[in-house]
Design a protein around this nucleic acid. Structure first.
Lengths: 247, 247
DNA sequence: GACCAATGTGTACGGTGTACACCTGATTCG
DNA sequence: CGAATCAGGTGTACACCGTACACATTGGTC
């Protein structure tokens, strides 16, 4: 038996411990100072040890995002869609604000991890449950996306599986199974994605028209602005009155 | 006389050439592959030569952003505020889309360079000219900010001078001069910034309440969503009808 | 022609992510 | 019990990064 003089046995590293350490280290020293070496040092381990639990730094960042998404409260029960959405967004915002680096990292990530997809699916469901059509929900999700995340753009663009490693050719049969599994786990997202492809009887099957989405949100805001102006809106009155700006 | 066999004399480098090369190189190879070394190589020059025209990489990125802001069309004349704003935003969007890396870089920058301030001031002016109160304009700018830029947050937070190097203590007298100059060049921005500080007779002098700004935009969107739902909005009808979603 | 500031060069340092070969210790099996 | 296995931790090494600093070369001015 080799004699290690460490008073207590070293705790085994694992993915969760790594991620947790990364998050709190980033909180302390800032995201730009977070390097694999620095993180390893924090965990009393040699840098390369981390790579046994995380493929590379990119995946580390993805993991950190998942950790934060996990901090967002689940939807409140027994509330109308609007206040439910409102509370959820504010909860998401609080989570992001707890970690100053989070916004930047979330926006830089392009791969959708399961936790993110879960959140999005649940979020989508709140509108559907609120009586929104699939069509409207789709555009609404785009419009509000930027308010809390940066995933406005590529969200529904392809129905590719979440970070399934694109290992060479996909057997096309496995592909069907994946999509089925996807539909089971993320029914709302899939509903929207599929409706996009063939809601035709319009001539062109528009995949997902970025420009349209952008203008949708823009005009929604501009119309709102105009209404407020015509009502003689003031922030003082709004503060007093509370609630929605369209008093 | 040293014999340089270069057929033609080497063109002198300058800041503009550096920035221009950086932009188009980033277009080609992506922003993450753009290094000082790679850029230098593109310009047939040793890496350190760049530092004669740009303080460091951060400033290079700032310069690239300025270049892009310069691509945004000036406001159209003789149009109502709404279509003027609309066209301007869409122009900004086009500029950003021409350079896939731009969005990310713009959002990562925190320092406001003159070109950016010019754009923002002019943008602000469009609302004021459209009959919006200074108060409402302030919140509107925050609400729309994220639609095209990432400067939602820290915009009006301090009235610090634009990238004036914070060289030690500012003589407090120079400070006044700077502010005056600022007011001359960016009247609209300054109008809003100063109105924030003392529009009181409310008890607290609220600097710039992030939370309020966020909820303002959020509720504006939610109210808009609700209206569309109640109207039975569909994207097909909207596409046919064109124009604003609140048909 | 001599000077001088601005511009370009060369070298070097400390940082990064991570490939790859290796060691180690706990668990499993004959 | 001893040997085998193998996930987890180690050490070294490489290519690349931004950039400080001392130096060489220029083009323009008197």
């Amino acid at each position: 038996m080799t004699v290690h003089l460490d008073v207590e046995r070293r705790v085994r590293l694992n993915r969760d411990r790594v991620l947790r350490a990364a998050v709190s280290l980033a909180d302390e020293i800032g995201i730009e100072a977070l390097s694999m070496r620095r993180l390893a040092q924090e965990l009393d381990v040699v840098p390369m040890a981390l790579y046994k639990h995380v493929q590379n730094k990119e995946e580390l960042l993805d993991g950190m995002v998942e950790m934060i998404v996990g901090e967002i409260d689940p939807p409140v029960r027994d509330a109308d869609w609007k206040s439910a959405v409102r509370q959820r967004v504010l909860s998401a915002r609080r989570a992001l604000q707890r970690h100053p680096w989070a916004r930047q990292v979330v926006e830089s990530r392009t791969t959708k991890t399961p936790a993110v997809l879960d959140y999005m699916d649940s979020f989508t469901g709140m509108f559907l449950a609120g009586g929104f059509s699939v069509d409207l929900t789709h555009h609404v999700m785009h419009a509000i996306g930027g308010r809390m995340w940066g995933f406005t753009q590529e969200l529904f663009d392809d129905t590719a599986s979440p970070q399934a490693e694109p290992s060479a050719e996909v057997p096309a049969e496995v592909r069907a199974a994946m999509l089925e599994q996807m539909a089971a786990r993320y029914p709302n997202i899939v509903a929207i994605a599929t409706s996009m492809d063939h809601d035709d009887d319009s001539v062109v099957s528009h995949g997902c028209d970025d420009q349209f989405e952008f203008e949708f949100a823009l005009d929604l805001l501009l119309d709102g602005f105009e209404r407020l102006r015509d009502q003689g809106w003031t922030s003082r009155a709004a503060r007093r009155g509370g609630g929605s700006p369209a008093a």
